[in-house]
Design a protein around this nucleic acid. Structure first.
Lengths: 343, 343
DNA sequence: ATGAAAGCGCTAACAG
DNA sequence: CTGTTAGCGCTTTCAT
């Protein structure tokens, strides 16, 4: 059973045709007779012939593979996006090489090098650091189509992301409409997030005529409930405590909920909390989480379409496109009206 | 800025050496003078030379890439495993091509074909269906090292997985020790699970002299809290209701917790529930979930080591190795002693 | 210590 | 319609 993989040449030899004819036949060229095609197909099937895509890639100068670079996959919304991307790409005949940067620019550079070495036809990337994009933008020098999956400030690349600023604003407005004026934000700092969410939060406050307070703005780098708990320690140390919290991702929000459980605060009676991302689990949290969500498939679809378009364009330079999808608030149980007696 | 990618030949031309010398120099061969190596390295750096791994793969007949096939990535424990795999592989100089079968054998076959076409050096796979492995086992015909990431009954392939049966037995024993005798199981049917967990559950019951009851055994195919809820509808319809539930994955357990919340049952006072996998969020569930967990990195490490070993072995046939890692119960709040007045 | 030639498995002209 | 030739970018004998 242990044979070496059959080549075009082998099936050429066994059928008596030339490798060229075999190649054409197998690719369904109209130039070859039905009769010979049939012969060739049979011979190919008999030995379980599978074309060597590597050889094909070499001669065609395209690998029909793309690179997907993620920061890390502890955030389920990213993995859903990743899976959707892979599925769509696979339907279009592309393989996906994946790599993780773990939010580290050095790793990211290495990953990009490896992908370039493998001559991927394009790259989809969640950047590790929204302020260090030079190594990504440099990909353009080699005509390597790239789309960013997060809106980085001043990027000269194509972007497909979510309307973070607007989503954050809507979340904050939701809290304001419930009567809250002391609203804390736990922002994810500059990676996995730029200043967009913070901006949206400030927009909402300004619009409602509420002064922002530095003591209510906490930055945490990472994605973990622990960070949410830590942030709460700081937030609730303020003299004038917040009555509502906007957590810039659901993991932070879980940390907040847990902090409340530990400290005997009822949600939403004593504290309202709203998250961001609407990961599947948010419906099953200690208090079902109100959060702002989006459809990862929509994001994936847009990104894949755009990337494939850029690939097909080839050398024809196209101006970078900036696309963002809508978010919407998913109302559950973790937000409620501010009570009179509240702090 | 828009140049084509430099080749060995180009930097040979610019330095006056032959492509062969350049190739040797860049790979650090001792055959070439330090002086010329330096010259060549400079020239290469100047044009940002990156070797074409595709060409390399073709001539060396190895791609230094492996295929990772997942069922789907809604289960966070799988994504953690996947990330750990990618990270380890990347450290060893391997790229990872990833594909998802969505628990569908047809998709799985397609994915495997694509990976073979790309001439991956090995495959790591969570099989879609533990009873349909023929297409995977066939990979051996082409010397394609493969390791299964789930213990399939009677597989003739290498396996690295968790001690599901023992973990399930331990979980059930835990409930029995708390005084429960009416213990329901929500099993994940035959994919993403074989009969191992059910077996472990039955083992524990038998060992304690408790008769098993068909009415307490529910099978659900999939990974979603909804299925847990559905199962509860069936389970609690029994005349003699269970006082404890073993959910074969954490998502099911969340569904159970949610069902309890909807029906006014207190956990663990009215019902104990234990999950499986210990996903990160289980600590933040409506009731912090007691569950049986393992370290995905350990699983990933074992799998990668084994695969790489098989790859290095080359044609030397080695008997399939069956490895399983330990599980341990993570005690939280969702299990408690059976009360006297309980059902 | 360096160069020339061959070839990995395939597709792409170009003939006939 | 089918065969011949060349070449993708690299490594690998084999010379020198």
């Amino acid at each position: 059973m242990n044979r070496p993989r059959p080549r075009l040449k082998d099936i050429a030899a066994s059928t008596g045709f030339s490798t060229n004819t075999v190649s054409l036949a197998l690719r369904g060229s109209p130039l070859v007779t039905d009769e010979t095609r049939q012969l060739i197909e049979e011979a190919a099937a008999k030995v379980n012939y599978q074309p060597n895509e590597i050889a094909k890639s070499l001669v065609q100068r395209q690998s029909r593979s793309i690179g997907l670079v993620l920061t890390n996959i502890t955030n389920p919304i990213l993995t859903h996006t990743a899976q959707a991307i892979e599925t769509m790409l696979s339907k279009r005949g592309y393989s996906t090489l994946f790599a993780t940067s773990d939010n580290n620019v050095e790793n990211e550079i290495q990953a990009l090098d490896a992908l370039q070495g493998r001559r991927v036809d394009g790259i989809l990337i969640f950047p590790a650091d929204h302020h260090r994009l030079a190594h990504i933008e440099r990909l353009n020098n080699f005509h390597l189509p790239t789309v960013l999956l997060a809106s980085a400030p001043g990027a000269t690349l194509d972007v497909v992301s979510v309307k973070e600023r607007q989503g954050a604003r809507d979340a904050t407005i939701h809290l304001i409409q419930l009567g809250h004026t002391r609203i804390g934000i736990i922002d994810s700092g500059h990676w996995m997030g730029n200043a967009q969410k913070l901006q949206g939060y400030l927009d909402a406050l300004a619009q409602a005529g509420i002064a922002s307070d530095e003591a209510l703005i906490i930055k945490k780098s990472g994605y973990s409930p622990n960070l949410g708990r830590e942030a709460m320690d700081e937030l609730m140390a303020a003299k004038d405590q917040p009555t509502a919290i906007f957590a810039s991702n659901d993991a932070f929000a879980f940390g907040v909920l847990d902090w409340c459980r530990m400290h005997g605060l009822a949600v939403p009676e004593d504290l309202s909390v709203i998250g961001f991302d609407n990961i599947e689990f948010s419906a099953y949290a200690a208090t079902p989480l109100t959060t702002v969500g989006y459809d990862p498939k929509e994001l994936a679809g847009l990104a894949v379409e755009r990337l494939l378009y850029l690939i097909e364009q080839g050398d024809a330079q196209t101006a970078p496109l900036f696309q963002q999808i809508d978010l919407e608030i998913v109302l559950r149980k973790s937000t409620g009206p501010r009570r009179e007696n509240q702090s």
